[in-house]
Design a protein around this nucleic acid. Structure first.
Length: 556
RNA sequence: GCGCCCGUAGCUCAGAUGGAUAGAGUACUGCCCUCCGAAGGCAGGAGUCGCACGUUCGAAUCGUGUCGGGCGCGCCA
């Protein structure tokens, strides 16, 4: 449900100034490219709620001084109860507008009426979007990198959901490739070792301790095959065991998928074959050195790619194309693929492959969101992550050590494009100073005040807010009004971290307010107005935390 | 060599559509609990936004070049 009661003061003010502009300078309306007023929100509160910089932009076009244009604009401004007093003309020609208190406080009633839906929008209604993320090979436990992917992807999905898109979360299992075979061989080797057989460990085998554990369990459950001679059975057992572990980890991380798509099904359903045949038919392939190549350079890739090796098997990216074709054919007009940045090399060929199919897939399909590598520090030293060597920090470790909320928040609070240093000792030792606690504390703190007051928050929905005149109150009102636009921006830019930035700021405003003013004052009108404001703040904190999958506790 | 990402305070990082005096956390110093919870607040110092040139009335933001760091460039996945 969209919160369509949200007052749009910005557009209203833009409209007023547009009127004023055309009244003062009719030539701009009649021109081939009529000038459009842009209203912005200044960072500095001293510059009012909104600012118009059109006078500066128009100086050259009109051949006038910016300040004179600004004066003319303000003079032509139609009267409105939105604006408090006459707009200031500041600096070289900025026009600063202060909202009337009634316009400013309208947001509180909107939040009360929308509740958990405040911040949602119907912008994406009727559009199916798929977010594919994690997509870890079932060859080992989920590690920190998968954790960052899980938190980022899930938050993206929640953001798009809040924008009204029909979102499907999907996990693509590479369960058919050489790595899986390798997994089977690794477990088999441990089984043989266990049975006292002297056999070399596979060169590219997985050496993690979990392999030995899986071997133990296999031997226990398959007494007829203690040496793991049935490689197929060993492999299936190992994959099932690891998938189960991953599912438990994801559950603990509060990440759920709608669809688990198996790479192997692309083969059994014949989609891989079909894709190859189709690409041959569209003429974007050629044979060379006994292999079948895709002319991906036709579509911007920097070199052509082998599709079918000379031994007759396919390279991994053929099923990948087939998979992405199914996304399009399943009706997902938008698809977002969340990947570790170490896979960025495959983006160009993926886009090229989809274009070469010539089935009407848009050029940038799918959108890629990459998360940069995480450097894990433990004991002041970098922990090298290597599945093969079996040395890494698992997602489970982090959840157990620093908690789900803090882990999710940490992974999302940074731009996914930048590398992240996750210092385990720091996160553990200072877990109570985690930024997420700061935000959660703001929520819990409001709950405490409300409990002390003892009244029913719902009765605050329509109280008179005219006593809210301090700078703290104005700042909070402004931040609350920004929330819907923030969610829209974060969804549009595919930038979950913006939500954390916003929440930290909102929490800071609340804490400052708390320390500067008393809420439970004698003056009844003032008390109710302040309580209404902090209840609205609590609602927005809660909605924001929900977007990043972090709980909003009443007590901490 | 080519491609992608990053370079902002001592450290970790924000800075959407180019705007006014570039922000937060942390660390350091000093203050503040007779409304709830000091897990908080207030104040202070700290930055030639890697560098250069360009576009613009205006650049941390856009463009080109350059330096530094990470990653990727296989008939591996």
């Amino acid at each position: 449900m969209p919160s369509d009661a949200t007052p749009d003061n910005k557009s209203a003010i833009a409209g007023l100034f547009q009127q004023a502009l055309f009244a003062a300078f009719p030539a701009l309306r009649d021109a081939a490219d009529p000038f459009v007023i842009d209203v912005e929100k200044p960072k500095n509160p001293d510059h009012g709620h909104f600012a118009v910089n059109s006078a500066l932009q128009l100086a050259k076009r009109l051949g006038m001084k910016p300040r004179d244009i600004a004066l003319a604009l303000v003079a032509a401004l139609p009267p409105s109860d939105l604006i408090s007093g006459a707009p200031d003309i500041a600096g070289p020609g900025f026009i600063n507008i202060r909202l009337a208190l009634t316009a400013e406080t309208r947001i509180v009633a909107a939040i009360f009426s929308a509740g958990d839906n405040f911040g949602k929008s119907a912008a994406g209604a009727g559009q199916k979007v798929m977010v594919e993320f994690v997509s870890a090979n079932p060859t080992g436990p989920l590690h920190v990198g998968h954790g960052r992917g899980a938190a980022t992807g899930d938050t993206l999905a929640r953001l798009l959901d809040a924008q009204g898109f029909a979102v499907s979360r999907e996990f693509y299992y590479n369960d058919a490739g050489a790595q899986i075979n390798n997994l089977g061989l690794s477990v088999q080797a441990r089984l043989r070792e266990r049975a006292g057989i002297d056999a070399p460990f596979p060169e590219d085998g997985y050496r993690g301790l979990y392999i030995t554990e899986i071997a133990e369990r296999y031997a226990l459950k398959n007494s007829q095959d203690p040496k793991g001679e049935d490689l197929d059975a060993v492999r299936k057992f190992a994959v099932a065991a690891l998938r189960h572990e991953q599912d438990l980890d994801l559950k603990a991380f509060d990440v759920q998928f709608d669809v688990y798509y198996l790479e192997s099904s692309l083969y059994t359903d014949g989609l891989v074959e079909k894709t190859v045949e189709h690409l041959v038919k569209t003429g974007h392939t050629y044979e060379q050195d006994g292999a079948l190549w895709l002319k991906s350079t036709d579509y911007g890739d920097d070199k052509d790619r082998v599709m079918r090796k000379s031994d007759g098997s396919y390279t991994y990216f053929v099923p990948d194309i087939a998979y992405h074709v199914t996304k399009w054919q399943r009706g997902f007009t938008r698809a977002i693929t969340e990947l570790g940045a170490d896979h960025h090399g495959s983006l160009a060929r993926m886009h090229a492959g989809l274009q070469a199919m010539e089935i009407g897939v848009p050029k940038g399909y799918p959108d890629y969101v990459l998360h940069q590598m995480i450097t894990v520090m433990r004991g002041g030293a970098e922990v090298k992550i290597s599945k093969r060597a079996g040395s890494y920090v698992t997602l489970r470790d982090l959840i157990d050590e620093v908690g789900r909320d803090a882990t999710r928040y940490f992974f999302v609070m940074r731009k996914s494009d930048s590398q992240l240093t996750f210092d385990i000792d720091l996160a553990k030792s200072r877990s109570e100073d985690n930024p997420v606690y700061y935000v959660q504390y703001a929520h819990a703190r409001i709950c405490s005040v409300m409990a002390l007051w003892g009244g029913d928050p719902a009765t605050l929905a329509e109280v008179d807010l005219s006593p809210l005149t301090s700078k703290y109150e104005s700042g909070l009102l402004r931040a609350l009004a920004d929330f819907p636009e923030l969610i829209a921006t974060a969804a549009r830019e595919l930038s979950p971290h913006l939500v954390c930035v916003y929440l930290a700021d909102l929490a800071a405003k609340l804490h400052s307010y708390y320390n500067a003013e008393k809420f439970l004052v004698e003056n009844e009108k003032l008390k109710l107005a302040r309580l209404a404001l902090i209840v609205a703040t609590r609602q927005v904190l809660k909605n924001g935390l929900a977007v990043i999958g972090v709980s909003a506790p009443e007590k901490m």
